[in-house]
Amino acid sequence: MNSDTKRLLQLIRTRLPLIQAPMAGVQGSRLAVAACRAGALGSLPAAMLPAERLCAEIEAVRRQTGQPLNINFFAHKQPQPDAAQQAAWLQALQPFYREFGLSGADIAAGGGRQPFGEEQAEIVLRYRPRVVSFHFGLPDRVLLDKVKSSGAVVMSSATTVEEARRLEADGADIVIAQGLEAGGHRGMFLSRDLTTQSGTFSLLPQVCAAVKVPVVAAGGICNAATARAACDLGAAGIQIGTALMLADEADTPPLHRAALQSSRAEHTALTNLFSGGFARGIVNRFIREAGFVNPAVPPFPLAQAAAAPLKAAAEAQGSDEFSSLWAGQNAPLAETGSAAEIIGRIMAGWNGPAVMPA
């Protein structure tokens, strides 16, 4: 076991240097519990959960395992809606709205992904999870100090070396190097320039060389070979998401599961259509016809309100052509089975026998 892996395990206090990626929409406490029981760091995605629901999920985990838990929040700055931009976005969606018989009245107010704020900080102080992770940078200093005062280890995603350096300087204890292969939302927070983004196995060694905190590799890690490659390139640990989406304990909807197990999973792409943020998912009709990256889309997370009625209408007809089928580029290698079995298969490639499952 290398020294960085030892430091990571001392921080997160798990048996394995593996983090179950928080994945809103395809998991709840069940997957987090299964990951914890397998010796990994289980995670709960909190950005889309009202306070009461988040507390219930945390308590569900606590009832079933005493192992360390990660709670993940988004640290984006909430933009102000722009009426002209919203109108342009709705106009771009009109052909699809007409097809499904929808109108502006079908757009729900509010909702979407909430940034980390005082309410969420109070939940952290109440439950004191071992790890609190963030996407889109870190919250402001006052909020971050509250998290630190709870005793939590702070972890956040970097998609560039510059972001990794910023996270370390701002107080992150662990940096997740999120490669371009990763499914779901990019953690970009210093720039929206997609030309700055690189794959895991280019980004990882550069981040490892640039920061002194432990670095966790994320993106494209789905089997023993990719886990071994991450270890060989200096990762202190790994984070897996898409690899667990077919797990028995995942709540991945049937349409999404079917897409992951089809040849369609061979084609994923970045798009801003579903939320306004760049995210990787399986290409479907909406992405092809509305444009992978559409300039009319409002900033994250405002686009979701107008895109959501299309998803609901199509899914009511048994179609996933307007659904956000988040998945990484190695989705075709995802396997079924229990979370423990999947984690065991992946960890078999990790070059650290001292942290292998018993």
Results as ranks from 00 to 15, higher is better:
Ala92Asp: 12
Phe96Asp: 15
Phe96Cys: 14
Phe96Pro: 01
Phe100His: 07
Gly101Asp: 09
Gly101Val: 07
Ser103His: 01
Ala105Leu: 11
Asp106Ala: 11
Asp106His: 13
Asp106Arg: 05
Ile107Phe: 09
Ala109Cys: 08
Ala109Glu: 15
Gly111Ser: 03
Gly112Gln: 07
Gln114Phe: 09
Gln114Ser: 14
Pro115Ser: 10
Gln120Tyr: 00
Ala121Tyr: 10
Glu122Cys: 05
Glu122Ile: 03
Ile123Ala: 09
Ile123Gln: 11
Arg126Asp: 13
Arg126Glu: 15
Arg130Thr: 08
Ser133Pro: 00
Gly137Cys: 05
Leu138Gly: 02
Pro139Ala: 11
Pro139Gln: 11
Arg141His: 10
Arg141Phe: 01
Leu144Trp: 03
Lys146Ile: 00
Lys148Ile: 09
Ser150Tyr: 12
Ser150Ile: 10
Gly151Ala: 10
Val153Leu: 02
Ser156Phe: 02
Ser156Asp: 07
Ser157Met: 06
Ser157Arg: 01
Thr160Pro: 06
Val161Tyr: 10
Glu162Asn: 12
Ala164Ser: 08
Ala164Arg: 02
Ala164Asn: 08
Ala164Glu: 11
Arg166Leu: 14
Arg166Glu: 15
Glu168Asn: 04
Ala169Gly: 11
Asp170Lys: 00
Asp170Ala: 11
Asp170Thr: 02
Gly171Thr: 08
Ala172Met: 06
Val175Tyr: 01
Ile176Gly: 04
Ile176Trp: 02
Ile176Tyr: 00
Ile176Ser: 06
Ala177Gly: 02
Gln178Phe: 03
Gln178Asp: 05
Leu180Thr: 12
Leu180Pro: 06
Leu180Lys: 11
Leu180Met: 14
Glu181Met: 05
Glu181Arg: 04
